[in-house]
Simulated assay, not measured.
Amino acid sequence: MAGTVTQAKPRARRGRRRGRHRAMMSEINITPFVDVMLVLLIIFMVAAPLMTVGVPVQLPETAATPLPAVEEEPLTVTITGEGTVTLMTTEISRDDLIPRLRAVAAERSDNKIFLRADGRVPYGDVAQIMGALNAAGFNDIGLVTDTGGPNMDSEAQ
């Protein structure tokens, strides 16, 4: 008897219905995450310039040019029209100003201080605060004013 070779029929697969079976998808769809991050970036880009020191004062106007931009937010001392002293946004007494400034400045790399004073504050009060800051070792003091004031140079006009 001659040997006959028969091919085995493939078995019918069980358990699968119509259509192809898909393997589990192991990728993360990051499109919604990117969309949310872009929206947040735009919101913060618009809101960041609005987040300045919030003590309302009427700054005097001068013809001075603005200072160059700094890396970290500078310390700001504000003297309001009523004579109260504010460090950043916290109202403090004049006696506590220097100890609080020293504590904050110890944690910072830049010791620049911006002094904002309402235009109604007498010059003597501003000079006293500047003298106290200077005596405490804070020599880099910038006076904050609004631009658009009178230009005293007759040739520049």
Rank of each mutant, 00 (worst) to 15 (best):
D118A: 05
Q58F: 09
S109D: 14
P49D: 08
N29V: 06
P66N: 12
P32K: 06
I141Y: 02
L101N: 02
M25S: 15
E71Q: 03
I30G: 13
N29D: 09
R102E: 11
T145V: 05
P10V: 14
A12G: 13
M88C: 05
R100K: 09
P56C: 04
E61K: 11
E155Q: 12
F114D: 15
E107L: 11
G131S: 03
R100E: 11
F33K: 13
L38P: 11
V70G: 14
E61D: 08
P68G: 05
D125I: 01
I129Q: 05
T86Q: 00
G119A: 09
T6Y: 11
Y123V: 08
V144H: 02
M51A: 15
L143M: 04
I141K: 01
V121W: 03
D140E: 12
Q128D: 06
T145E: 00
V121M: 10
K9C: 15
P74R: 06
R16I: 14
R11F: 15
T147K: 10
A12D: 11
S154Q: 13
A12L: 14
A135K: 03
A48H: 08
V53W: 00
V39P: 01
K112S: 15
S109I: 03
I113F: 05
V104N: 06
R17W: 07
D140I: 02
Q7N: 13
E61N: 07
A47H: 10
V104W: 12
P49I: 04
D118K: 01
M45F: 08
R13K: 14
P49F: 07
T65M: 13
R94V: 00
A106L: 03
G149W: 00
G149A: 02
P49M: 08
V34N: 10
P66Q: 10
P99R: 04
V53G: 11
L75C: 03
Q7I: 13
A69F: 01
I79F: 00
V55T: 03
V46K: 04
M1K: 14
P99N: 04
A106G: 06
L101I: 09
I42G: 05
G119C: 02
R11N: 12
I92Y: 11
K9V: 15
L50K: 13
G149I: 04
M152G: 09
E91A: 08
R11W: 11
E61H: 00
V39E: 11
T76A: 09
A63M: 00
A2R: 13
P150C: 05
L38Q: 14
V57I: 13
E27A: 03
M1F: 10
